[in-house]
Design a protein around this nucleic acid. Structure first.
Lengths: 207, 207
DNA sequence: TTGACAAGACCGACCGGTCGGTTTAAAGTT
DNA sequence: AACTTTAAACCGACCGGTCGGTCTTGTCAA
């Protein structure tokens, strides 16, 4: 009746997400993961059949939790599609520290597994695609409202994702998380120009 | 009689650049590098004192060769700062396949060394900075000409770099190099809007 | 004769993963 | 309630192999 209560899987998944986000795939060892999670090696391999399978589970859980934060933003209440799209990007900007404080799990491991772990990169591909489609639903109506055809909602979604991932890289190498926030703000500026609005310049949240 | 210079260093550097660009730092082993370069382990450790030191040399050489291609573009001949800036971005777009066909060495290893190899990430930081400053020299005069103050040349340079690095990630995970070209084209569109020009957009090809 | 350079066997630490055995707790039996 | 059964959860010593790096033994041009 009562399920066996165990949090080994959860602890391992969280440890994996945190360690791989800041070290990548290869540099994160199973021994490090189990030490960080406070779990034994036997327990680890009872819960997951391999490091590769664990990585895929961690990626899926990461996407789910991330999208839950994004989907529940106040921007969703806004009626006007144009204002909603801009508020959405500003929401990402404000939540960027919470969402990608130490990087993005997908971005951190995508490069090094692209040519060696097909199952992982395939899942990353799908998860990126899900995220893009989620963004598209928010951005496309704004373009439609303004009758803009030179750029599609899909184009913009792909671009926003690239801006986020790229800004994470520059933020990491410059050791300054501000670069991520500024990168998203710059995209918002672009979106504002596209939608032919004025006065969308950055409302700085914290210096 | 010209003394024949040993090319062990050069072969190792090229092998390192190619392998690390597509696999990252940790996943690229010294044994793989020497096999790819056709060099013995003794020769390797005679030429470089460690994998870490080699990585820094490979990064510097990578930046030098990359910037040589960028600096010699035809855009440089254009007199008008605005047209020159736009032509520069279009040049990057056209050369993106040559410059970042299999990724960017700096981006590929920056994430995984950020918290474990200070000397490497410090050099990456500086090299990114050099690249940014090089771009700034080209973009800033266009903003000045158009008397645009809401965005600085530095802001735009940082953003272009982020767009490139991020687009490389999405291109890799989607296994489609087109994403990189489109990402740069999207930046050019932004720049065009900023400079209040029309007709700089090209149709997107994402399907 | 010398010293730069190359070769590859070798080193200890560490890698991902396995294994036999122990603990835990829900369910069945009395 | 007390005991037995059962199977999942868990443990950590251990495995073969690989890691970055060292060392001895050369080769060869000056």
């Amino acid at each position: 009746m009562v399920k066996h209560k165990t949090n080994t899987k959860e602890k391992v998944i969280i440890a994996t997400q945190e360690l791989m986000t800041s070290r990548g795939y290869s540099a994160t060892t199973v021994d490090e993961i189990i030490k960080y999670a406070g779990v034994s090696k036997g327990g680890f391999y009872h819960a997951f059949k391999s490091k590769e399978e664990l990585t895929i589970v961690a990626l899926e859980d990461y996407e789910e939790k991330g999208w839950e934060i994004v989907a529940n933003g106040a921007y969703a209440e806004i009626e006007d599609p144009v204002e909603r799209a801009l508020a959405f990007v500003q929401f990402l900007e404000e939540k960027s520290g919470e969402l990608w404080a130490h990087g993005c799990l997908l971005g951190s491991i995508s490069i090094e597994v692209a040519n060696s772990h097909p199952s992982v990169i395939n899942r990353i591909d799908e998860l990126f695609d899900d995220f893009e489609k989620g963004i598209e639903v928010i951005l496309a109506p704004a373009l439609e409202t303004k009758k803009i055809t030179e750029v599609s909602g899909k184009d913009l979604s792909i671009h926003l994702l690239a801006v986020i991932e790229g800004s994470i890289i520059t933020a990491k190498s410059h050791r300054n998380p501000r670069f991520l926030q500024d990168g998203i703000a710059r995209f918002r500026h672009y979106l504002g120009l596209l939608l032919k609005l004025d006065g969308v310049e950055k409302k700085s949240t914290h210096q």
